[in-house]
Each structure stands twice: as C-alpha cells, then as structure tokens.
Simulated scan of single mutants.
Amino acid sequence: MTSTSELLLPPSRIAPPMNAPALRWGILGPGWIAARFAEALRHHTSQKITAVASRNAQRGSAFAADWGIPTAHGNYDDLVARSDVDVVYIATPHTLHFEHAALALEAGKHVVVEKPLALDADQARAVAELARSKGLFAMEAMWSAFLPKFDVIDQILTQGMLGEISTVLADHGEHFDTDHRIYDPALAGGPLLDLGTYVVYFAQKALGRPTAVTAVGQQANSQLNGQISAILTSPTGGHAVLNTTILADTPNLAALCGSSGMLSTEGVFYRPGNFTVSLRDGRSARFVDDVSGYPEGLAYEAAEAARRITSGDLESPCHTMDHTISTLDTLDELRRLLGIEFPS
C-alpha cells in the first residue's frame, strides 16, 4: 500500500490466510469456482480438504485427483455424514444452495455457501435461523468482503474520510455465450445473482439498506433477463447507480463519492486490486494491493471461516448473515420490479 506524505490510508487488519488454524473441509459440487477454491486452500492456506461430493461420480473422482483430495463421494449425504469433515463448502448451482446448506447443517456441519447464499432472502433467513438453532457457523462466500482491500475501504468509510457518501457507481458486466449455464432459466440464470450480487453488496456497504429501488431491464431472450440498470436510494437520500449485464463486457469499475472526496477503483472492483482516494482539499493516496486475484483471494474467506469456527463464533463480522439477507432483500425487490422469476 502506498500513500502520499499528505494523506495516509489505514493499513489492512487482515492476517495472512496461511496463519489461520487448519480445519477439515468437504466440498459439495466440483465446478469451476470449487476448483479455484480448492487451489486457494492447497496453495495459500493450511486448510485440509478431506472429501468432495458430486452427483456425477466420475466428475467427483477427477476433481479429487486434480486437487489431491483423499475421497470422492457420488452423493452429498455421505460427505456431510463424515466425522472427519468440520466445515462444508457448498458450490452447487444456485438453485441447490438452500437445500444443501440445510443438509449440511442438519448433519451438524458448519457451512460456507457460495454466493448467492440462497435464491431469495426468505431462504437465507431460514439458513441463518437453522444455523443459530444448531449452534453452527454459517457464512456466504462473498469473497470480496474478506479481502485486505475491502478492509481498508471499510476503515475509510468508518473514519469518514470521504465525508457523507451521496453517490455510489458500480457496474459488473461480462459477455457470456448462450451455451453457458448462466443462460439456463432453470438454474436461476441471468445477471442478477451471479453478477448483480456484487454491485448491490458494494452499494449497501457504503449507503446501507435502500429505502427505494428503481430499475429497468433488457431481455437476453424471451425467457431470460440479460441486463439490469438500477438506482438504490439510501435513507439519507444518496444514490447508488448500478448496472449488471451478461450481454457485453463492461469496465467493472466502482466509485464512492462523498462530500469530502472520492474513492475510485482500478480494474474489476470486487477483486483484489488498487484504488485511489482523492480528497477535495487536493490530497490523494493510492492503495496498491499485493493480493494477486484468483485463486489467492479466495483463501481469505476460508481463513476467516476457520478462525471464526475455531473461536466458537457463529458468524463473521466481516460479512454477517444480516448483510447477506439485506443484499438478497434488494435483489428480491429488483426481481419484483422486473418480473424475473426463478424456479420454486
């Protein structure tokens, strides 16, 4: 991290992932993000992966071979029943997150669930209530929330360095071919959950839960939303202007704009990366990130879960279940406004 002599940015308080106590992990769903997670655990943490489970036994066995995992199961029940699994990382399709989180919790396992934690806020509330009733840890794998970069941003906001935030700008767009699973309505496809979660999370980090939401959408085809542009209004009257799309690549930048200055990101805003703080009095400073991105960045969420579980905590203060539910409440409102329907 670098700062000018006139403006000093707070240092990150996040400890290195390798220092977190080692837990034994099971993985449900050997897809793309699970492979990145396994790589992060193997190369950037002291965590151990005991088993992986897939409905496709051949795919699960291949994943286990790729990442040095001792056991592959052809069903999820056998994995969550294992005595040598402390915590289950759930990376199955969005439509199964709620079911599989409940399965693991009922089996007495802590859970880290890929974002979105559930299809809607009611499902997320049910996961939170079940975890609390069982005395188990539950956390959404919103990896941005656990990165050193975002810890520094949190401190900047808490210290009021930017003054009162009136405007948040964020976009997350990526072009996908139509044979990608994000085009499958049966899997809750479209930009809202895969990409939109990030922009809403970022906006609410700065402005809190919105009091009003407006939005327009563009269809990808007759069955699927392809783009959403939204304005979230905060309790103080501030605006978050957000866009998310699967129809085109966009800059994927973000900015926090306040009465005293502005924070602007470089590169994809939700990933590790640099940002600049420019104050109205002429002072500025640049945060230079030393975290590389995928897969290293995913190590921080695993380390946070390991530390919290070892300490007996049921949630992470970096990203509480209330944070997850609040984001999903807003996503639910966007769905209502645009008539987007997901599978029951």
Rank of each mutant, 00 (worst) to 15 (best):
D289A: 04
D313G: 14
L207R: 13
A102N: 10
G190D: 02
V80S: 10
Q155T: 01
N75D: 06
P343T: 02
D84F: 12
V80K: 12
L195K: 06
P70R: 06
N243I: 11
S344I: 07
A51L: 05
G31W: 10
I325P: 12
L242T: 01
Y76P: 05
A131N: 02
S12H: 00
K109R: 00
L224Q: 00
H44C: 04
A203F: 07
R42S: 02
N19L: 14
A72G: 00
G190Q: 03
L105D: 00
S133Q: 05
W25A: 06
E114A: 11
A285K: 08
I27T: 04
E99R: 12
I231N: 13
T276N: 09
T250P: 07
I182A: 04
H100Q: 01
N225K: 12
S259G: 05
S54F: 02
S61H: 11
R335T: 06
H172M: 05
L8W: 09
T45Q: 00
T167V: 09
P295Y: 06
E39P: 10
L279F: 14
D177C: 09
P30W: 03
T2N: 12
S260V: 10
H175T: 10
T250S: 05
I153G: 03
N243T: 15
G31Y: 11
L279N: 15
T324N: 09
F37A: 09
Y294H: 06
V112E: 01
L169T: 10
I309K: 06
K205R: 15
N252V: 07
G190I: 02
D194C: 14
I69H: 04
Y89M: 12
